[in-house]
């Protein structure tokens, strides 16, 4: 999918969780992505976080380590 669209989707999720306490928010973002994003989407996300990470809300960046790896 287009990088802009993927980033927008991730950031929208982060936006929702911003109103939660910080740690809960980071976990919330990671869990949401783990629960609903197919591996191809997560792979693209990791890829973009590695190369283009200023596109993302800080919460998404922080959530990275809690997002399930794609094998």
């Amino acid at each position: 999918m287009s990088p802009e669209k993927l980033a927008r989707m991730a950031n929208q999720i982060a936006t929702f969780f911003h109103s939660k306490p910080h740690d809960e928010a980071v976990t919330g973002v990671a869990e949401h992505i783990n629960n609903f994003w197919e591996p191809r989407m997560r792979a693209q996300l990791f890829d973009m976080l590695a190369n283009d990470n200023e596109k993302f809300d800080p919460l998404v960046r922080e959530a990275e380590s809690r997002i399930r790896a794609v094998n």
Binding site: M1, S2, E38, M41
Partner: peptide, 18 residues
């Protein structure tokens, strides 16, 4: 055990060729 693609994601993946 992995979630699959949702309709919009299917269409995106189709455009990407996967």
């Amino acid at each position: 055990s992995e979630p699959g693609l949702r309709i919009p994601n299917m269409l995106d993946a189709a455009v990407d060729g996967t």
